[in-house]
Design a protein around this nucleic acid. Structure first.
Length: 528
RNA sequence: GCGCCUGUAGCUCAGCGGAUAGAGCGUCGGCCUCCGGAGCCGAAGGUCGCAGGUUCGAAUCCUGUCGGGCGCGCCA
């Protein structure tokens, strides 16, 4: 046996069927071919080794099953030690030691400040923040960053719309409509209006600049409601003003990957596998969005980040290659430029698709969503689905179902435990400090087995950079606790020792639920 | 046409190489003398789009095919 750990596809897993034990491994089956022995023979040999080895005390049972599984049942004492560890260091429970601590920049939302955040922005905001939390749980140092466009055509359109409404004229064809624009028009301060209408002034730009600042304030307030806090707000204009774009283009030019054609300036993206070359400066001399993007990359790396993550909607996936290629051409490791594409959210109301348009003013704002379902329920909804898949979101259904949202199931279990602990204290009962004999009964054992899974669930989330596993696990643990509650009377003054042990287990469960919810940014209420 | 994502229970979604395919909601039927009924127990409901292939083993990997979404601008 050269190096069994190096055999591909070897896994240790939790069997779906608890009758097979706590852990199972396919090691023997994977070894069968290279060793030219039958899987059952190998499994038997491994089982004997484990049963008599120095760690034999860890296992209550080591069994072999067809066609070659090795099934392990962990000894009660190991679970008892684990629960004791949870109680001794609750804040540490579920945290994963970083293999390598890196400085990571995560840019998300980055919606232009031309209108309030809509439900369309909600997914990016939640998923971006959840990603950051998962990275932090994995020991990474994370900076949350919001990139916004504070000049240019979109902002001028907004300004023109405000200008028109203020003067009682119809909103221009490519302008913005909606109650918030009318609100903005009413709130234009006298000095701003004077500056916008002075001789030689550009009303669109002046009013657009003012309005976009106001809108940014609205956006920040909405994000605060979500529990999303950004460390850095970066303006596109600053990338040009501070010379980042110019220097980045020069770097590409020095690398020989820039050329002029048809009056425009191009990046040779095809040299790195792209479908076509990409314009940096248009023939009228103005920069494309891509120009700002490459300047931004150099600006971010100049701040010492080891890794950049961009959370974008799938509709931007066509721009990934050019940006990654430019990063590589400028000398950065392309693997340190990572894009996570968020699947489309199809909004439906009572089964009928509704289109969202900021310009047409037909959209549901993020604040409306939160008013309807609450931040915990909204967070749970997005956390429980893979980031890259397209999903349907029926806001009417969400509204109706908000009272029976699965998040409350988990929170209820937490609140129920809190209530039991309060009652125990009033009765003079306290959780046991010694956990010997904790797994005396099957209800206890089942609950201990489930709560012990938290670290591996978190590790899986960290590796996958996804959170569905955490919501699923929290639901499992809540279910397991409700079963325990049904089958095992916790508070019983006639059985103080047993009560103390069960209280200890309940407290460890409460900690586990709170840590799982905390990782998702969801509250764990003491009562509800 | 090409590229990427996607098709799993009535609905919304997990599972993504292992041993009887899961959850929530919905439907039907039970459970409040006792630690919170926002709970518990049970039932119905699936050819994992389809067809080949790889493997001891495929919802999971490969190929093809059909359906849905997104992208393929000197737009942002």
């Amino acid at each position: 046996m050269e190096d069994p750990a190096a055999a591909p596809g070897v896994e240790v897993e939790r069997p779906a069927n608890p009758a097979f034990g706590d852990f199972a491994t396919n090691l023997a089956m994977k070894l069968a071919r290279p060793l030219r022995r039958s899987p059952l023979d190998i499994a038997e040999a491994l089982a004997t080794a484990l049963r008599t080895g120095q760690d034999a005390a860890l296992f209550a049972a080591v069994d072999v099953a067809r066609p070659g599984f090795l099934n392990l049942r962990v000894a009660d004492a190991a679970y008892e030690a684990l629960v004791a560890g949870v109680l001794a260091a609750p804040a540490q429970w579920g945290r994963i030691p970083a293999v390598k601590r890196r400085k990571i920049n995560v840019e998300f939302v980055s919606a232009n400040p031309t209108g309030p955040l809509t439900v369309g922005n909600a997914r990016g905001a939640f998923v971006g923040d959840l990603l950051c939390r998962v990275l932090e749980a994995g020991g990474q140092q994370v900076t949350r960053e919001y990139y916004f466009n504070d000049s240019g055509a979109q902002i001028n359109h907004l300004g023109a719309s405000v200008f028109a409404i203020r003067r009682g004229e119809p909103v221009p064809e490519d302008g913005y409509k909606g109650a918030y624009v009318e609100q903005l028009a009413r709130e234009v301060p006298d000095d701003v209006w004077a500056a916008a209408t002075a001789d030689g002034a550009q009303p669109d730009a002046v009013l657009g600049g003012w309005a976009s600042k106001r809108v940014r304030g609205m956006i920040e307030a909405s994000l605060a409601r979500l529990g999303v806090h950004f460390d850095v707000w970066k303006s596109e204009a600053s990338l040009h003003d501070e010379g980042w774009v110019a220097r980045a283009v020069q770097r590409l030019r020095d690398a020989g990957e820039v050329y002029e054609q048809d009056g425009a300036t191009w990046f040779r993206s095809t040299a790195y596998g792209d479908d076509k070359d990409r314009v940096i400066f248009k023939s009228d001399g103005r920069p494309t969005y891509f120009a700002a993007d490459i300047g931004y990359v150099t600006e971010k790396f100049s701040r010492g980040f080891d890794h950049l993550i961009y959370v974008w909607g799938v509709d931007h996936h066509g721009t990934v290659a050019r940006n990654k290629n430019a990063a590589q051409a400028m000398g950065y490791n392309p693997d340190s430029y990572q894009v996570i594409l968020i699947g489309w959210v199809r909004f439906v109301a009572d089964g009928v698709e509704v289109s969202m348009s900021k310009r047409a003013g037909t959209f549901v704002t993020l604040d409306d969503l939160l008013d309807a379902v609450g931040t915990d329920a909204a967070r749970w909804f997005f956390a429980s689905r893979a980031a890259h898949v397209e999903i349907d979101f029926d806001i009417e259904l969400a509204r109706k179902q908000s009272a029976e949202n699965p998040v409350y199931y988990v929170q209820y279990a937490h609140a129920r435990i809190a209530s039991i602990l309060r009652k125990a204290e009033a009765a003079g009962l306290a959780p046991a400090t010694s956990v010997a004999g904790l797994l005396a009964g099957e209800p206890e054992a089942a609950l201990a087995r489930t709560l012990s899974r938290l670290p591996e669930v978190v590790e899986d989330a960290v590796l996958a950079e996804e959170t569905q596993g955490i919501t699923a696990y929290a639901t499992d643990l809540a279910t397991e606790f409700h079963a325990f509650y049904r089958d095992a009377r916790v508070l019983d003054e006639a059985e103080p020792d047993r009560s103390a042990r069960r209280l200890a287990l309940a407290l460890a469960t409460k900690t586990t639920l709170a840590n799982a919810l905390g990782l998702l940014g969801i509250s764990a209420p003491e009562s509800m």
